[in-house]
Simulated scan of single mutants.
Amino acid sequence: MSNMRNLVASTVVALFVGGGAMAYDKWKGAEWVVSPEQIAEAKAGGNAGYQSAPGTVAVRPIRSEIADVLPFKWLLYGVAAGALTFVSLRKKKAA
């Protein structure tokens, strides 16, 4: 029964850490260099597009170079946290 408890606890920790990493990246906007919201705000303000640097105007959303790797990062964080939890919960052998 102890192994089942350890597996459940490890799964819960893995989901929590992976979901937390995903939420943090979504909150920071790691998927976009120029997001659709930024372009919409700029167009609502009367500009042609979002000015990311002096002299450069983006009229389309630009995805980040690491956007395709983010799900693997979240998965890796979750698996690492789950494995660490599973190893730390096992019974210690008496010396």
Results as ranks from 00 to 15, higher is better:
Met1Arg: 14
Met4Phe: 15
Met4Pro: 09
Asn6Ile: 08
Ala9Asp: 08
Ser10Met: 06
Val12Pro: 02
Val12Gln: 04
Val12Glu: 05
Val13Asp: 05
Leu15Pro: 04
Leu15Asp: 03
Phe16Ala: 13
Gly18His: 00
Gly20Asn: 03
Ala21Gln: 09
Ala23Thr: 08
Tyr24Thr: 14
Tyr24Ala: 15
Tyr24Cys: 09
Lys26His: 11
Lys26Leu: 15
Gly29Val: 07
Ala30Glu: 10
Glu31Cys: 09
Trp32Ile: 04
Val33Phe: 09
Ser35Lys: 03
Ser35Trp: 00
Pro36Ala: 08
Glu37Met: 09
Gln38Phe: 07
Ile39Ser: 00
Ile39Cys: 01
Glu41Ser: 06
Ala42Pro: 01
Ala42Arg: 00
Ala42Ile: 02
Ala44Trp: 08
Ala44Thr: 10
Gly45Pro: 01
Gly45Glu: 13
Gly45Phe: 08
Gly46Gln: 01
Asn47Cys: 13
Gln51Ile: 08
Gln51Met: 11
Gln51Phe: 09
Ser52Val: 12
Ala53Tyr: 12
Pro54Ala: 03
Gly55Ser: 07
Gly55Glu: 03
Gly55Val: 00
Val57Leu: 06
Val57Gln: 05
Ala58Leu: 10
Arg60Ala: 14
Ile62Glu: 06
Arg63His: 13
Asp68Tyr: 12
Val69Cys: 12
Leu76Met: 15
Tyr77Val: 13
Ala80Pro: 04
Ala81Arg: 03
Ala83Glu: 05
Phe86Cys: 03
Phe86Lys: 01
Leu89Ser: 02
Arg90Asp: 00
Lys91Ala: 06
Lys91Ser: 02
Lys93Glu: 15
Ala94Trp: 14
